[in-house]
Design a protein around this nucleic acid. Sequence first.
DNA 1: GTCTATACACCGATAGAC
DNA 2: GTCTATCGGTGTATAGAC
Lengths: 199, 199
Amino acid sequence: MKAEEQTSAARRRGAQDSASGAALMDAVEAVMRQDGYAALTARRVAGHAKLNYQLVFYYFGSMDELLLATYRRHIGRYREAAKEALQSDRPLHAYWAASSKLADAVLNMEFIALSNHNELIRAETVMFGEELRTIDFHHVAPALQEATAEAKVTPAAIVMVLNYVGSLLSVESALGIQGVHSEIRALVDWCVDRLESDR
Amino acid sequence: MKAEEQTSAARRRGAQDSASGAALMDAVEAVMRQDGYAALTARRVAGHAKLNYQLVFYYFGSMDELLLATYRRHIGRYREAAKEALQSDRPLHAYWAASSKLADAVLNMEFIALSNHNELIRAETVMFGEELRTIDFHHVAPALQEATAEAKVTPAAIVMVLNYVGSLLSVESALGIQGVHSEIRALVDWCVDRLESDR
DNA sequence: GTCTATACACCGATAGAC
DNA sequence: GTCTATCGGTGTATAGAC
């Protein structure tokens, strides 16, 4: 997890978008989900992909680079899902459904926690975090015109609140907490319905 | 981080609430904040407290138990802060202020991530998560009577949403994301003001 | 492209001196 | 209560054979 050395000498390197390269990235996600980022070692990841662990270094050069490549792939998928939801007929409903169901909530949380301590990952998170707030809110804005007139309700703020609530709701569900989750969902559903009636 | 062995033979053990014991727990929190739970090793933690690392085992028996003791202490403090806020004059305002300012947001996130992969920590999180939703909402309920009549707005749901939003807002702030944070704060402030006017 | 062999650092944990 | 010495295991990373 820490850059040990920086050999200026060129080293043999395989293509990351090969079968084995992709398998290693898949394995990173699987291990993170199961045992957390602390369990991300070359041996464990490669073992999960049934590959020799030295191939991590052949394909990615270091554990850090494998992790970064995996995160970038993960963000790319997330970006597409978010855009699709926000461009749909009822963007708020769609975005809430995506945020609160997300099977990747645990993975997201892991990457966020990791961002607090890994500079490369942090830079990527900040960049995407800012990007997420600038993408096409044209579809969301109309639904909010009534509410906006009354208060300081901006589309971006609404979307982010849905994101936050959905994420932590999912993570807590994964932990086994149930408690008032149904009440929270009812509350958010009610708010979303009010802001975005069927049209 | 994993229980290595279980010596049935009794071993010498110091009191956890001693100066060194407390220093070790402080160091756990500091290391977690700075470098994440993955950096929690006996040597690092003790080094941070300027103590010999074998004292971890003298006072706590294992790294797992040190971690658990630290988490329980952390939860105890959190519990007190939550109760105090919810018993104040304007519980929603107070709870929102506490949730969205929380310097411990990063630490909380780390413990939640850890809960996904450590059974002891997970059990503690679930227990406290359920407890948090059952404590005295008597002070919150009156403020919501108007809103409750209109919709499915329960005190517990409101409080948890504030908790979720405040936590992730804080974590993102710690990462350096600013974006629409002021808009989100304005939105939540407006909601809280409406639900709980000055009285 | 994948393998074995090897380097060196750090890990949790224990035993026993002081 | 704190120290030194020591154990076996695992971590990242490299070199070079096939």
